[in-house]
Amino acid sequence: MATPPEEDSLESRINKATNPLNKETDWESIKAFCEQLNNELEGPQLATRLLAHKIQSPQEWEAMQALMVLETCMKNCGKRFHSEVGKFRFLNELIKVVSPKYLGTRAPELVKKKVLEVMYSWTVCLPEETKISDAYQMLKKQGIVKQ
């Protein structure tokens, strides 16, 4: 049995925050995850990897909670996190969720819709992260984003 992540690691916090068994949104764990990722040297890099994995979950509630964590962190965690999310290394993982060539045919509709919504919101409120609009334009060109 894989050793469980230590109690207050980013991994254990994201597991709690996105647990499909949660009856409702676990804002405590979301807040703790955001604070922790800011206090660790490699926090933003690890956080985006963990979030990408959860967002790609076939379980709708787990993926939707992960998107809520992502949105909360984008509002509260500042520049270091913004620049990690603004890299193709992370954006490509979101693109896979909506692209029929990758996970798009299996991903829940609600999750795909939410991914496109948050990406669009970032093109508006984070214009300096130019790769985000590059990725969004490409999705529009491929007809994945309806005009």
Binding site: L41, F88, K131, A135, M138, L139
Partner: peptide
């Protein structure tokens, strides 16, 4: 903590 600024990245996925 100021992390060293790592700008490494991948190319945009083409779909």
């Amino acid at each position: 903590p100021t992390s060293f600024h790592d700008d490494s990245d991948e190319d945009l996925l083409n779909v």
